[in-house]
C-alpha cells in the first residue's frame, strides 16, 4: 500500500552504483542500443522488480556485461536473451513468454473486453423493448423532440 518507491531496491543497490554505467558501454552504438533494449526487458534477480538496465545491483552489472559480450560475439538478440533465460529461468523475462502457463494472462484481457461488449449489448437489447402501445413518433415529432432534448442539455 505504501507507494514510496524503491526502499528495498536502494538498500540493495547502495553498496555499488547506479544503473547502466558509462564504462560498460560498447563502442558500436547500434550494438549498444540493442544491449540496452535487451537489458531493459530483463528483470534483476536481486532487487526483483527492476530491469537490470535500471538496477544498481552488482549482479545486474554482471548480466549487462554478459549480454554485451554475447552481442559482440555475434549473438542475435534472441540468442543473448535465451542465454540468460537458460541460466536463470523464464523468471528474468519482464515480458512473460506466451505459452500454456500464460495463455490466461495474455488472452484474458482481450477476451474480457469482448465479453464485456457482448454482455453490454445483450443488456442494452433487453432494455430497448418499447412498450407495445407506444405508437412510433412521426418524423415531425422526432425532430421536435430532438430539439427539446438539445435545449435541455444546453
Amino acid at each position: 500500500m505504501r507507494t514510496w518507491f524503491l526502499c528495498a531496491l536502494l538498500l540493495m543497490a547502495s553498496l555499488s552504483a547506479h544503473a547502466v554505467e558509462p564504462r560498460e558501454r560498447l563502442a558500436d552504438p547500434a550494438l549498444e542500443a540493442r544491449a540496452r533494449t535487451i537489458s531493459s526487458e530483463l528483470r534483476c534477480l536481486v532487487c526483483q522488480n527492476e530491469s537490470i538496465d535500471e538496477s544498481g545491483a552488482d549482479l545486474a552489472h554482471d548480466i549487462r556485461m554478459f549480454v554485451r559480450e554475447r552481442l559482440t560475439a555475434g549473438d542475435t538478440d534472441a540468442q543473448a536473451m535465451q542465454a540468460i533465460v537458460s541460466r536463470y529461468g523464464a523468471f528474468v523475462l519482464l515480458k512473460p513468454p506466451v505459452e500454456r502457463a500464460t495463455y490466461v494472462l495474455w488472452y484474458a484481457p482481450p477476451a474480457l473486453v469482448l465479453l464485456g461488449l457482448i454482455g453490454t449489448v445483450i443488456w442494452l437489447r433487453r432494455r430497448q423493448v418499447v412498450p407495445a402501445d407506444a405508437a412510433p413518433l412521426s418524423p415531425e415529432e422526432t425532430r421536435r423532440l430532438d430539439g427539446l432534448l438539445r435545449e435541455n442539455d444546453g
Binding site: 526487458e41 522488480n49 529461468g89 528474468v92 512473460p96 484481457p109 482481450p110
Partner: peptide
C-alpha cells in the same frame, strides 16, 4: 505449483494501454 514468472511493463504496455 506452476513456474515462477515475472509480469513487467511489457505486459501492461501491450494489454492495458490499448484499452
Amino acid at each position: 505449483g506452476g513456474p515462477k514468472l515475472s509480469v513487467g511493463f511489457p505486459f501492461f504496455n501491450r494489454t492495458f494501454a490499448p484499452m
